[in-house]
Amino acid sequence: MADPSWSKHVADILRRNDIRTFATVPDYVVTHVLEHLWADPECRVVTVTREEEGVGLLSGAWLAGRRGALLMQNSGLGNCANALASLNVAGQIPIVLVISHRGDLGEFNPAQVPMGQATGPVLDALAIRWVKPSSLAELEAQADGLIKLAYTRSLPVAFVLPAELTGGKQG
């Protein structure tokens, strides 16, 4: 059973690492995190029309001195692969990706499965360091270090949030 406090942990991890600017194309899972951010007057959350727009927007925010995180489903990773490669990796512009993982354990929708299985390989192919914590303990053990690495390397990093952690979406 997923611990329902996972979403508050994710929101707190981002905020305690000085991230206040967020972009999103919401899905059922990341909306639980967004609710904490929407409720926080210090946080700016921009809902974009397509995930790669969020990549551009948060890259601009970083160039203007602000850290940013993009909250999306793994389908959105497919939508922003080229922007991550040619803007963030080539230009050494860090961004924190928070990706809800559909298409893996417990998935009910066949259309989600191929991108779900491709999520890790796509991140690896872009040399984006990522973690997939399956429990709150793992999340807390890895999170600050992963975000610190993003700004040390000046490159994107990704949290892939599996159904074991979040409860996923039940069909």
Binding site: T21, V55, G56, L57, G60, A61, L63, L87
Partner: peptide, 10 residues
């Protein structure tokens, strides 16, 4: 979008 991110941040 990059320009929008800059404008919102500054």
């Amino acid at each position: 979008s990059i320009a929008l991110g800059i404008a919102l941040a500054r």
